[in-house]
Amino acid sequence: MLKGVTIGQFFPGDSLIHRLDPRTKLLATIALIAIVFVSQGFAGFLLIAAFVLACCASTGIHLKFLFRGLKPILFIVLFTFALNLFFQSGTTVLLQLGPVKITAEGLRMASFMAVRLILLVVSSQLLTLTTSPIALTDGLESLFRPLEVVKFPAHEIAMMMSIALRFIPTLMDEADKIMKAQKARGADFETGNLLQRAKAMVPLLVPLFVGAFRRAEELALAMDARCYRGGAGRTRMHQLRFKGIDALAALAVLALLAAVIALNAFHVW
């Protein structure tokens, strides 16, 4: 039942975007999110959407995966849409049903907000689709390194993230084993109401946690045995290096920003 759970949604590949430095992709994603907020109209959104779709197409990843991430926020999108549609004040009434009226301004605002939300999710999706979790961790560590002067634990956080990534499959396997063992003893995880099912999880979670703590202890010992002493003085086998394509990517994102600002200035839509 827990088999085949993948962490993140990384699609290995060899496209231009795959080969970008993870730091570039992180910064570009932040920039993209900012550009979504900068855009004042639908023309800008259209441009951004075209940009993201083109990027995705160039990676060879099916476009449908871009929209996968929308599922959990679909409710929020619909909710904001409805809220804006009914409560945005406006003058041009399109439809009136008793006290409820829909105005043109409301419709525009509602669509604007919904599209903005969708674009935010879709454009950050590109990052996780094309970057392995471990590259992401390395990128984050490297980006936050400068903050270590103000005691920000960049190395420690990155180490924690990568150890978590390393142990997720192991703990999944273990949970699976415990579940089977409990089922063989007549435990029932699937029927009953929410409370009953939550209760049924206790005999699963207790051994899982005990096991996890034992693992943590042994891992700490194994790390000590291999001379681990925190981030200071540590080198990495894989050095992150900015290349020509990273500059190219930065230029593309800057061009997008310029175009969106121009569209704003000319009040297109």
């Binding site: 979790p133 471990i134 990568s162 150890i163 990534l165 390393r166 192991t170 034992r214 693992r215 042994e218 891992l219 010992l221 194994a222 790390m223 045995a225 291999r226």
Partner: peptide, 14 residues
């Protein structure tokens, strides 16, 4: 160097 008993609990990286 030291090699421990449990293969799962001494591998650090992914």
């Amino acid at each position: 160097g030291m090699v421990f008993q449990n293969p799962d609990n001494q591998i650090v990286a992914t």
